[in-house]
Design a protein around this nucleic acid. Sequence first.
DNA 1: CCGATTGTTCAAGTATTATCGAACCATGAC
DNA 2: GTCATGGTTCGATAATACTTGAACAATCGG
Lengths: 106, 106
Amino acid sequence: MTTITRLPHPAIEEVALTDVLFALSDPARLEIVRELADGPLSMAECGATNPALPKSTKSHLMKVLREAGIVRNEPDGRRRTVSLRRDELDAVFPGLLDSVLGATDR
Amino acid sequence: MTTITRLPHPAIEEVALTDVLFALSDPARLEIVRELADGPLSMAECGATNPALPKSTKSHLMKVLREAGIVRNEPDGRRRTVSLRRDELDAVFPGLLDSVLGATDR
DNA sequence: CCGATTGTTCAAGTATTATCGAACCATGAC
DNA sequence: GTCATGGTTCGATAATACTTGAACAATCGG
């Protein structure tokens, strides 16, 4: 009885730069990443901005971030904890996340 | 009689981070940016990789880069010189271009 | 077990992007 | 002027991506 509570994550070595850039190129996703910069959050907690966002939409945004290797999504009781894969990304794309998070968007 | 040889470029202050990230998120466009890192090129010269690329396609790729504020495209005789807006981008998004260009893509 | 909570996945509709031939435009060479 | 060159724009089609409701899954509390 296949329980699939654990979602697939790419190994950091097989994460493509263009996929990372693409995932970050959407304002809603970038905002989520910014929120996660301060530490892990549950799905319910993140997306504080955008409160009216349907959960299926949020789940999909997160999927793109996860598949791009930017975020980790782990089961935690009946919720899910989402966290930035910051150290891993720094190792593979040094400075990238810092410059994106440091940018004052306009 | 409206001569439109001069293409529109966004002022650097009104360039959006997400637009920059999006423009860089395409492998063909990223490759062009990498080529331009060594100095300006004419349209004909860049896209050395991808030699079979139709000119209309290349022109469109360049348009996306230009409209994102990444590249400058200026008339120069009967050709066009394309150059990276590196200093400007560094000023607005410090470290971003460096980290993207420095990344060993996979 | 039952119900409420927290999410994910599916499917369908919509919207955005990519691709590329054909037409067009400016320039330089002659 | 005429022609070739280098490049942009237009228009149509194909391919991706976004959004969302509805169905489903897993867990916790009582």
